[in-house]
Design a protein around this nucleic acid. Structure first.
Lengths: 253, 253
DNA sequence: CAGTGGTCTAGACCACACC
DNA sequence: GTGTGGTCTAGACCACTGT
């Protein structure tokens, strides 16, 4: 078995900034990540061992290890006892994140627009109450939006939120992602669980999404929780499958 | 703001086994995780501070911290400087993993069966070649399977694998998950990228999946990489949306 | 054997939250 | 203030890999 790139690694000059509030391990990790993504350290490269690397940067070994571990968690390198640290395919830019569709589209260089179809207070149905973990018939906010990219309909988003979460209005919603607005109120988002499926569009949905009759839609149901384990949002969404797919990257740790 | 469960935490008697090959931090993390999942340490509980906890277990603080960090990574607790470590809703049993459909079904208590429709060596089409990162028209293995649960068709799985990966036969495939067979050959799976979408079934597909004509199918395309960044598998799958959905749990860190 | 990463220790100082 | 977690150090010993 021949090594893809057996070369030892001489990292470009780099010194940490000990006056910066940014942790040293993070400065190092960031630097190495940039070097990998820029192609300066190609796939297959074997790093110097961590002891020498720590010494040459004037850091302790635990700090150096922490930087390395950060890269492992991101899937950028693989470490093996007795072998070393090797750069792997930098394919996974980011692991799965809790992103809003808004951000996804912006990142893809498209211009998302949002139309708020309705924004009302309603009594929670049994399904909504169960997901949000509130008593049935509790008053919650229901908001329905259409998200378009370059004018084309991408998704119809229906969200339910507990009353106390909502401190914004239609105007804010048309301009900002829902998560951004929630976070802005000091809510710390912690986790989410999402279910993806498919079904055929009803006639009304097809019209709304500019799709042919009977078109296949991607469906998504998502519940988001804050760091107290409280459900802060339940979403029930449909996506035009001809214009949007979900990408999921994962590590096999 | 009143605390959900203000009680300090008195952990049940527990001593680490210093003769075990299992790392101490892992023993501690496992013990705490069990305590959380069993309900012995309910949601909202505030842990003792890590210094005392370390002392009471006869461990150093870094080791205790490492155990804690493990729980944070799993989404079981939240830590805040100046506040403490709090148990959150243990909803996320496991984050997103690279599981085979086989395992998913077995875990759900259903009986998966696999029928191998074909298992041949073919020349890679341009799409397949691109995903597997091999030259066009390279010979690869193509295998087509139907996965059923309790007799009902759930998915049609089409996979392409580089020739050197395949050291198993149809019989193995009918009994074991594909990933299991790949791993058994010493291949270390590292990461995968998956795209989920939807489309309507063709007449043949509808028949195969016991679905009505024009039914919506969930589509999935997945490429799996080993720890050298080599693509080891490309899958192009369809799922009966009436019988299967994808569940995705994620942390917002 | 020599070289690698994996684990663990016993301290230190700092930033932040709450009283 | 006091108490919490966050960072960092300078060592030590071990387990695994390859020669």
């Amino acid at each position: 078995m021949s090594e893809p790139t057996p070369g030892l690694d001489a990292l470009p000059r780099f010194v940490v900034d000990r006056t910066s509030p940014v942790p040293l391990y993070y400065q190092v990790a960031q630097h190495l990540e940039d070097a990998i993504h820029s192609g300066a350290v190609p796939t297959g490269t074997l790093f110097q061992n961590e002891v020498d690397l720590a010494a040459s940067l004037g850091l302790s070994r635990p700090t150096m290890r922490r930087a390395m571990q950060h890269l492992v968690d991101k899937g950028l390198v693989v470490r093996r006892r007795g072998i070393g640290t090797r750069v792997v395919q930098p394919k996974l830019r980011r692991s799965l994140e809790l992103t809003s569709l808004n951000d996804d589209l912006t990142r893809a260089g498209r211009k998302p627009t949002t139309e708020v179809l309705s924004f009302e207070r309603v009594q929670a149905t049994d399904v909504v109450a169960e997901r949000l973990e509130v008593p049935e018939a509790t008053v919650v906010h229901e908001l329905v939006r259409i998200r378009r990219a370059d004018g084309e309909p991408i998704a119809r988003l229906i969200n339910y939120l507990p009353e106390h979460i909502v401190a914004f209005d239609e105007l804010d919603l048309a301009e900002h992602g829902l998560y951004e607005l929630i976070r802005r109120q000091g809510v710390v988002l912690h986790s989410a669980t999402q279910t993806l499926g498919a079904r055929t569009a009803t006639a009304a949905e097809a019209r709304l999404m500019s799709e042919p009759r009977g078109a296949a839609l991607v469906t998504a149901q998502r519940v988001t929780y804050d760091d107290h384990g409280q459900a802060v949002e339940f979403g029930n969404h449909i996506y035009a499958s001809s214009r949007y797919t979900f990408e999921i990257n994962l590590l096999t740790t």
